[in-house]
Amino acid sequence: MASDKVKSRREFIRSGMRLSLALSLGGVAGLAASEMTGDGHVWQIDPFLCTQCGRCATDCVLSPSAVKCVHAYDLCGYCDLCGGYFKAGYNELSTAGENQLCPTAAIERKFIEEPYFEYHIIEDLCIGCAKCVKGCSSFGNGSFHLQIMHHLCVNCNECAIARVCPSRAISRVKASQAYNVKGSFTKES
């Protein structure tokens, strides 16, 4: 009898505890639900904050990095002498290796018509080192810029490159507006 009593008392305490735990879970859920969105979030780079430090290439958990150079053709001047394509001390304006800035030759230069050239990023080769971005934004219009490519990005909960980004250019954005492509995305003033 006594043990039964102990048992039922124990069971009572247990259900009491269970109830309070359930309530606190409910509380947490309610609190969280009040500031929740239906939209998912992904990491993205703000090209206007990016300082082309190169850590996107080295610190992403993926290798090669999920960060790639994106070309906003709208802003491109289609120049013959592209600051993003040629080394500053280029030998001549040709596609030869000694003139190219890109370490992986990921930029394709195509002649369109006098005097314009199209520059196209071969995504598979790009490692996101931002060399061309720096060249383009220093000398040109800044049409090259880095973006996190979402078919590659594993969307880590803690983004390793966001943590090491010295200019805090990487933040979570809504998945429905997953890119900050220059031209359609303007600098916040």
């Binding site: 239906g38 939209d39 998912g40 992904v42 994106v70 070309h71 906003a72 053709y73 709208d74 802003l75 491109c76 001047g77 289609y78 369109i112 018509e113 314009y116 199209e118 196209h120 990023i121 995504e123 219009n141 800044g142 973006q147 490519m149 979402h150 078919h151 990005c153 969307n155 998945a175 997953a178 890119y179 492509v181 220059k182 031209g183 303007t186 600098k187």
Partner: peptide, 27 residues
Amino acid sequence: GQQRFPKPEFDSGYEQPDVIAPEPRAM
């Protein structure tokens, strides 16, 4: 915006490629 500058007008019928921006995993 400020960075916006009219791009060349092409005579050869060149079509500007689209910006590559693969969508993230669907919600």
